Simulated assay, not measured.
Amino acid sequence: MICRLCPRECGAERTEGLAGGICGQPSLPVAARAMLHRWEEPCLVGVHGAGAVFFSGCNLRCCFCQNGPISQGGIGKPLTAPHLREIFQKLVDLGAACLDLVTPTHFTPVILEALGDVPWPVPVVWNCSGYEKPDTLRLLEGRVQVYLPDLKYALPEPARTYSSAADYFDWASAAILEMFRQTGPYRMEAGQLKSGVLIRHLVLPGELENTRRVIDWVSETFRPGDVLFSLMSQYTPQPGATGKLSRKVTAAEYRSAAAYLRNCGIRDGYTQERTSAQEEYTPEFDLSGL
């Protein structure tokens, strides 16, 4: 296929056996791990964990990615749609609180085939970078119950520097509005998120102004009870990181971001302990569960 699924619109030819484009993947899904994942937000984990499938490749390719071995390093196992459906079913049978599809955008057509038309007994979660095309998201309407987008940047300069995507906010803000149009205000049952939008933002060292502008947009765009917001402290410097990204977020930086969040009136969601900035929170991408 000539791929235009994401905002890069690179027009690469991606077939079952031919990888290409910014994501560097073929048209059939490639994944690096399927597991009951306990380190998502509490409303997604339940008793046994979120049923996470970590897809390989990424259209954004941030230089600080904690999943670098699979997003950019080529690790992964090719899957067919029937095999992927079997993985989904196995995770549900193991007691997964949701189907957590991590970095799925570049495999959208085949994931939809694997999901099928009959609703699953647990919510389907679209866990993505936020760098999405609304046209692609519209293909998911009625098939995805929970959207879990990052909102990494509101300023063009860090988006350009760290992800080569100066237009990130334009696309991400439009994408989140489309996600909210589909799901409406979030809905919880017994502490578990059944439908809605949960926006994540990772605080980056030395980039508090970017964090403030992200929070401003969310607080000005949505009313209390519309969306959930997760302010993450878990940035971990990756090998070769330089400049601002060579250190973790300080306690003072994260306290400032959390205080700004509260002052803007955002109460629905999560903050993190700074102990979350540890490599142990990133799974081993050893192809298990596939």
Rank of each mutant, 00 (worst) to 15 (best):
F55L: 06
S56D: 08
I75D: 07
T105F: 00
G116D: 08
L101W: 03
C65L: 07
Q89D: 13
I111M: 04
R85H: 10
C62D: 11
L99F: 06
Q66M: 12
G68Q: 09
G73K: 08
D117L: 10
G57V: 00
P69G: 07
V92S: 05
G51Y: 02
C62P: 09
L79F: 15
A97S: 14
V102E: 09
V110E: 13
K77A: 15
Q89N: 11
L101C: 08
Q66L: 09
G68E: 14
L94R: 08
I75Q: 10
T103A: 12
I75G: 01
G74T: 11
D100F: 15
L94N: 02
G116T: 09
D100H: 14
C62I: 05
A114L: 01
G74V: 12
G95D: 06
C58E: 05
I111Y: 07
L84Q: 07
G74K: 11
N67H: 14
A81S: 15
E86V: 02
I111W: 01
P78F: 01
N59C: 07
P69E: 12
A81Y: 03
T105P: 02
A96L: 04
A50T: 05
L94K: 13
F54M: 07
A50H: 06
V92C: 04
F88M: 13
S71Y: 10
C63V: 14
N67Q: 07
Q72H: 11
L91E: 13
Q89L: 13
I87T: 15
G51I: 07
Q72G: 04
G68R: 15
V92P: 06
L91I: 15
A96M: 02
A52N: 04
P82M: 07
K77W: 07
S71W: 10
P109M: 11
V92L: 02
I70A: 03
R61W: 01
T80F: 09
E86S: 12
L115E: 13
I87V: 15
R85T: 07
K90Q: 14
F88N: 06
P109G: 11
L94V: 01
C62V: 09
L115K: 06
Q66W: 03
L79S: 10
V102F: 01
C63L: 15
G73H: 08
G57W: 04
C63A: 07
P78I: 01
F64W: 14
T108Q: 04
G76N: 08
L99G: 04
N59E: 14
D100C: 13
L60Y: 05
L79Y: 11
K90H: 13
F55A: 03
T105Y: 02
T108A: 10
L94T: 00
A81W: 01
V110H: 12
N59I: 05
I87L: 11
